[in-house]
Design a protein around this nucleic acid. Sequence first.
DNA 1: GGAAGTTTGTTGACATATCGCACAAACGTG
DNA 2: CACGTTTGTGCGATATGTCAACAAACTTCC
Lengths: 254, 254
Amino acid sequence: MTGISQRDTMGGLAKGLSVIETFTAERPRQSIAEVSAASGLDRATARRCLLTLAHLGYADYDGKFFTLTPRVLRLGTACLAAMPLPQMVQPWLDRLSEELGESSSVSVLDEDEIVYVARAAQRKVMSIALMPGSRLPAYCTSMGRVLLAALPEAEALRRLRLRPLAARTPLTLTDPDAVMAELKGARERGYAVIDQEVELGLRSIAVPLLNARGVAVAALNLGLPALAGDVETLSARYLPALVRVQGEIRKILR
Amino acid sequence: MTGISQRDTMGGLAKGLSVIETFTAERPRQSIAEVSAASGLDRATARRCLLTLAHLGYADYDGKFFTLTPRVLRLGTACLAAMPLPQMVQPWLDRLSEELGESSSVSVLDEDEIVYVARAAQRKVMSIALMPGSRLPAYCTSMGRVLLAALPEAEALRRLRLRPLAARTPLTLTDPDAVMAELKGARERGYAVIDQEVELGLRSIAVPLLNARGVAVAALNLGLPALAGDVETLSARYLPALVRVQGEIRKILR
DNA sequence: GGAAGTTTGTTGACATATCGCACAAACGTG
DNA sequence: CACGTTTGTGCGATATGTCAACAAACTTCC
């Protein structure tokens, strides 16, 4: 009920988690000083976090550099496994994907990013491999647009402003106002279409997944190669199937 | 150097991580008392951990129950993204899978479990969806067998004894000594074959992935439907391709 | 090659956060 | 409303963060 008081927090936990998040594809092996710089923690504190992680088996230490171990994946999969959504939607995804011959995915919103939680991959249209846990910016993806559109305008705008919008392709919208206009359209139409804003050659169409109370809890999309044909024919062709699955999932989402 | 001294550890971090790991598919929503019971922590401590997680956005709190948020996935994906292996092997997996028309995967060992880190799925032979981060017990999987076989015998035995071996199918080996004998065979042959020990209808063949120094750092497998034909013809047919990819990956693994 | 300058890992002292216990308050139930 | 269960809150003892100092390793520059 009340706000979080100083008394109820655990600094050590917050610091340790921020230490784990400093490890990225660019910096998979880090020294104590690097982690200290990346996390803003004192070197002594970073050292204690890292030694603790190593002691618990979450990290390896060769005397100089630390790396994360697969044990860290337990944390993430504890989360995925604890989500009922992926298991519920997977059969629908498989069917949809099979039927249309294209990849379909379900994602949820985490601040300004979408997180894939389930996926049925068909052929490869994207250069990067997407899988559960993968993240993409919300502003330039079809699923991100329908999820942002479900938020109050001010909240959506706040999330758009968390970091500068990067032009991933020449077609990417990078003006927050332009994206807000797209959100408005998505809200009115009930779906969003993206034309090569994430990656050249890739189009995508998404609908929100609503629970029984009508709250958007996730998004469902189809990834499509940018072949001939304009965006209207694309939605005419694929939207019905998406809307059908949207309705079916809504029935089983409490 | 020296062991980890009391001075160099952070109890709060260890406790918070164990709290995260108490969330499972069976218990996705937990109260403070449940987490306390599951983790062995004092209720007051569990409460502080949970409030801290909620404050940081890793958990949601409705006043009664806590659930993990997708933000927790950042921890796991920080780990996956920080592993060079998945990105390096993915193209090989895709090619192998395409060529043979069967699913192939790469996994690493975490204590007594294998953790999928990359996968190219072809058709569905398994009832459960496997994806990066998924876990299976090592003792009854082909990849687990080759990875355990690469350990010193005593260490392999210790891991087999961490929890009782469950019979997932009537064909599952549940006697540690019997599994140890299989490990010996796998070590001598350089590969392992599993016949429906994980799931009826599923066979699998795996080879270890060695780095340039000859250390087994991961395993590569093919999942196959249990059709006609015995296990010998299966290895005769699929082993060459696996060994070829094993050699290619060894060249690029530092 | 070596000396000065820099970065890094480690340790100690002190102030403070946090643990775990015990108790109080709230909740749900018969 | 009394009961059992769960959650929230002071308190003393202890663990832990911060800061500064120091030694070792590494750079740089002559």
